[in-house]
Computed example of a mutant assay.
Amino acid sequence: MTSPLPRYSRVLGTGSYLPPQRVTNADLAQRLAADGIETSDEWIIERTGIRARHFADTGVTSSELALPASLAAIEAAGLVPADIDLIIVATSTPDMVFPSTACLLQAKLGIAGCAAFDVQAVCSGFVYALTVADSMIKTGAARKALVVGAEVFSTILDFKDRTTCVLFGDGAGAVVLGASETPGILAAELHADGSHVGLLCVPGQVAGGVVTGHPFLKMDGQGVFKLAVGVLEKVARSVLEKAGRSEADIDWLIPHQANIRIMQGTAKKLKMSLDKLIVTVDEHGNTSAASIPLALDVAVRSGKVKSGDTVMLEGVGGGFTWGAVLLDV
């Protein structure tokens, strides 16, 4: 007799990893000054809330950052790599055109046979990946899923554009999601609107052995800000309604760590105290798909997020994509 399909999935463990090189605003200002570009610690903090970020060394890939984050999450879950039967990596900076970064991570973990694939939704990528893993667990396609956000955004930054290069950093975050008889992930919702592609993109590709188009990140900062706050509030309220919860039930808000103003604006629209907002953007910068799992792991390991807490995860990114996940820890 086959066992019944699991009804729910829960986060069993979290992990994260930052490359050793910490780059302060002053360090970045000095680098830009060598090219005659003016910026300052005060200018960056005032507009973004960012004080520092981490950059990977030349040649370090997303899968290399993902490995220690994944091992930490697997250990925190009380498992070993062989227990994992699904790997999803959210990234906009894959190691190669193909195979997927997930397959490369699978090999680094020393396991084989389980499904492994990437999700590309830029800064919303982890929310997308977590939602897909939750669905696969609920259908019985997997029981122990490794969900990772990993980025080496420093490789696609134009260091002659101070409006974008000061925003981003490198890193990886991971969770292990497991089948459960009790609710963990309560509700999720994903959206996209490709008509806003020009707000945030890297409009280049590899063709004929060379990079064609523009190989660096381009962003309309004001356009992103205006769209982000509105869609994040709307999707959060929709997910709460699906779960039969209210804003008052949220113990912690962990948004994509893009800009402190967007994050605080979203919290205020949800009538949440800023004390319930998990903030790591000041030390990590915007690590795109890695930012939510990085912040979640920091919050868990610092003792802020505890078992029994209700957490709202939400992200918005190029595409334009956005989404939210409500979960009980």
Rank of each mutant, 00 (worst) to 15 (best):
L104T: 02
T164M: 10
A258H: 06
L86C: 05
G265K: 10
C165D: 14
V11P: 10
K160C: 10
G15T: 10
A236V: 00
T266K: 03
G318D: 08
I262R: 10
F98S: 12
S124G: 04
D118A: 09
A150G: 09
D251T: 00
W43M: 05
E233G: 04
A90C: 02
S154I: 12
E189M: 13
V122T: 14
G221W: 09
L157M: 15
S62W: 01
H54V: 11
G223Y: 08
D170W: 07
A299D: 07
S62H: 03
R10S: 13
V197P: 03
A299C: 10
R53D: 02
A34S: 14
L86Q: 03
T212I: 14
V231I: 07
I262Y: 09
V80P: 04
A267P: 08
V239W: 02
L274Q: 15
R162C: 07
G15K: 08
K304I: 02
M312V: 07
F159W: 14
G194P: 10
A188Q: 14
M96D: 14
G13Q: 04
A299H: 11
G204S: 13
M219A: 06
I250N: 00
W322T: 06
I87F: 07
W322K: 08
S124K: 05
Q120Y: 11
S246F: 05
H214V: 13
L326A: 14
R301E: 15
K276A: 00
E75T: 15
E64A: 05
L313C: 06
V147W: 07
A115S: 13
K271M: 10
G317Q: 07
